[in-house]
């Protein structure tokens, strides 16, 4: 069942005629239109972790902004839980963490969460319990009484995650949840997202860090220059078979290598070892056989599968 669906969603930004750029007043009459999103069709199913991937400026944030009602789509429609955008009942069942969040820095940690609880209309006693629970979840109990201006970037990100979970949402939208975090922080966020899936929640998140996405996403969509390149399960997008073999040989001379050089993908010599990349199983077997016969030694043989990164690069290059 699709909880998020978009149909032909497009966004064209029109810049102001009079604008300030680098502190100078600028009058712009041409080139005022930028297509940020072009005809996006997406379906996100209940209970899955959906990754919206793409390089900077691909339209990821624009998509989330439209879904959150921060921007209005130029054309096309979108539905969350079967209701059009902006529906109050739906809004009370979703959580949202914006990119590089900045919050009311004059509020203390618990005041901040309490304020958001009020916006959801949660009554006072429940609010207090929920605030404590969330602070513990994101590991900020010690910082509950510190104003947000004293928070580090990671703490900010975590309190942002906490506010997104304030209403126990069914769908959580996370815009670049791991950007700017150290490896440990990234792992924590990753575990948190996986925990959410365990609770049966849908997670819709955008990222340009593919390795993170690869680890947790059920399905991904790849955006580039506002257009949807592909969408699907990771297993569908990436071929499961081995596509390359990396062979490391020792004690072979250059003559031997030259025999195969034409058929190999890459050949690199380093400290008396030869690194070869082969594209087929037969070729690999033949090289290894021949090398052993010539008295060479096989140091390592690594079969390589396609990664999301490879797929991504090939997709982007193809456009």
């Amino acid at each position: 069942m699709a909880v998020i669906e978009t149909q032909g969603l497009s966004k064209v930004y029109v810049r102001d005629v009079i604008d300030t750029e680098y502190g100078r007043l600028r009058i712009r009459l041409t080139g005022r239109k930028t297509v940020a999103l072009d005809n996006l069709n997406l379906d996100v199913n209940k209970g899955e972790i959906f990754g919206l991937l793409g390089p900077n400026g691909a339209g990821k944030t624009t998509t989330i902004k439209i879904l959150m009602g921060i921007h209005f789509a130029s054309s096309g429609t979108a539905k969350i839980m079967g209701k059009p955008l902006g529906d109050r009942a739906v809004k009370s069942r979703i959580g949202f963490l914006p990119e590089n969040p900045y919050f009311y820095d004059y509020l203390k940690g618990w005041e901040f969460l309490d304020f958001y609880g009020q916006l959801y209309g949660i009554d006072k006693r429940k609010r207090r319990a929920k605030v404590e629970e969330l602070l513990a979840l994101v590991g900020l109990t010690h910082a509950a009484n510190i104003p947000l201006r004293g928070y580090s970037k990671g703490m900010n990100q975590r309190i942002g995650l906490a506010q997104a979970l304030m209403n126990d949402p069914d769908i959580v939208f996370l815009d670049e949840p791991q950007s700017g975090l150290d490896p440990l922080g990234r792992k924590e966020v990753r575990d948190l997202i996986l925990g959410l899936r365990k609770q049966g929640k849908t997670v819709f998140f955008s990222s340009h860090i593919l390795s993170d996405a690869e680890m947790i996403c059920d399905r991904v969509a790849i955006l580039f220059k506002g257009k949807l390149r592909s969408v699907g399960r990771l297993s569908e997008l990436l071929s499961s078979s081995v596509t390359e073999w990396e062979i490391v040989l020792r004690d072979v001379d250059e003559r031997f290598i030259n025999r195969w050089r034409d058929r190999l993908e890459r050949v690199v010599e380093s400290e008396g070892e030869w690194w070869l990349i082969s594209k087929s199983q037969d070729l690999t077997d033949a090289i290894i056989d021949a090398a052993t016969r010539d008295g060479g030694k096989l140091s390592a043989l690594t079969p390589r599968r396609q990664s999301l990164e490879d797929y991504f690069i090939s997709e982007v290059k193809g456009s």
């Binding site: 902004k65 959150m68 009602g69 921060i70 109050r88 009942a89 809004k91 009370s92 979703i94 959580g95 949202f96 963490l97 914006p98 590089n100 969040p101 900045y102 919050f103 009311y104 958001y116 916006l119 959801y120 209309g121 942002g160 506010q163 997104a164 939208f173």
Partner: peptide
């Protein structure tokens, strides 16, 4: 400017 509005707008208020 500080984008705090983002989280406000996504909450169930007009």
């Amino acid at each position: 400017e500080k984008r705090t509005i983002y989280t406000i707008v996504s909450k169930p208020i007009g």
